[in-house]
């Protein structure tokens, strides 16, 4: 079953939200437009709309997360849904329950939507292909595959700063190979029609055939790669990359790929600097850049709530399988 079929219903409406792949430009723009309408709510004193009143959303996080889980929870609560937070690492799987059994049990409790983060690529597709009709799956990150809500909030941020996608040159810097965020961002940027997506990293952190498989321009030299770009997205560098012989040290990474004020001069004057967080200051970027005038890192977090509200409300099915 392809991702396209799984994510959309027969009217091409969102049924699950699993990956950017298979979604067209119009749908991505509709998500951004819908998020726009929720931005106003987040600024109000009463931050709630009744859109999902009576619906139950379960947060299934098989990997630790603070930011993503919290913003999903806030998004669901602002839509008036009831939210279940399941700390899976200490409950079901440690008793040997399979992912499918976890799904079935929660479906039996009339959960309408699952927001899942899982360490295995394809986990969200797996869940979606076995979910009851009327139950929606939202991918909050699966292995190294996809993190589509992060990509959409990044697109929202870019649009709010730049207005239009088409003239943009975007550079993504860091561990592309292991990054679900990068994969989703690249697909979203290409779908939205930016003029160029570049990835910048040493050869150990870029898939060998990235140009063909991901549709990007590959750079190994940071100064060359960020020249004249409009947006720079820095990725988080995981500490364990040092032990797998992928990098010699954080120090050398920062020397070669760290974003400093000096390097930033090479980019467009109006360059926007982004990071999905959490930042390793002095590893991916200098503090002066993270907190500098080009940085929109905290806006990304704020927008994350509105974008997730948009996606939750668009993917929620009108009635659950039981009522049908």
């Amino acid at each position: 079953m392809s991702a396209v079929n799984l994510q959309l219903d027969e009217n091409n409406k969102l049924r699950h939200f699993l990956s950017i792949e298979g979604l067209n430009r119009d749908l991505l723009l509709r998500i951004l437009d819908s998020a726009e309408s929720f931005i106003n709510i987040t600024g109000r004193s009463v931050k709630k709309v009744p859109a999902l009143r009576g619906k139950v959303i379960a947060n299934l996080f098989f990997e630790n997360s603070t930011r993503t889980r919290t913003t999903f929870e806030l998004a669901a609560k602002r839509l008036s849904a009831d939210v279940l937070n399941l700390n899976i690492s200490t409950s079901a799987t440690s008793k040997g329950e399979s992912l499918l059994d976890t799904l079935r049990n929660l479906e039996a409790m009339d959960v309408d939507m699952f927001v899942m983060r899982h360490g295995d690529s394809g986990a969200a597709h797996f869940l979606a292909s076995h979910a009851n009709p009327g139950v929606s799956i939202i991918n909050a990150g699966d292995g190294q595959h996809s993190h589509p809500t992060q990509a959409m909030l990044d697109m929202f941020t870019i649009r709010s700063v730049k207005g239009d996608f088409t003239p943009l040159r975007v550079a993504i810097v860091g561990d592309i190979l292991h990054s679900r965020v990068a994969r989703s961002q690249i697909m979203a940027l290409n779908t939205l029609g930016v003029s160029e997506v570049r990835v910048i990293a040493p050869r150990t952190l870029i898939p060998s055939n990235a140009r063909e498989s991901l549709g990007v321009h590959v750079y190994h030299d940071m100064d060359e790669g960020i020249r004249d770009v409009d947006v720079i997205i820095m990725l988080r560098l995981q500490k364990e990359r040092m032990s797998g012989a992928l990098l010699p040290s954080e120090h050398e990474f920062f020397q070669c790929y760290g974003l400093t004020e000096e390097r930033l001069q090479l980019a467009d004057d109006e360059v926007t600097v982004m990071h999905p967080g959490p930042i390793n200051r002095g590893v991916e970027m200098a503090t002066a850049v993270a907190d500098g005038k080009h940085s929109v890192i905290l806006q990304q977090v704020t927008y994350g709530i509105a974008v997730r509200m948009a996606i939750l409300s668009m993917a929620m099915q009108p009635s659950s399988g039981r009522e049908q």
């Binding site: 792949e21 690529s121 394809g122 699966d142 292995g143 190294q144 595959h145 996809s146 679900r180 994969r183 898939p207 060998s208 055939n209 990235a210 063909e212 498989s213 991901l214």
Partner: peptide
């Protein structure tokens, strides 16, 4: 296989 499809799907190759 460490190739185009696995790279896109984020599957360890």
């Amino acid at each position: 296989h460490d190739g185009r499809v696995a790279n896109r799907l984020g599957l360890p190759g």
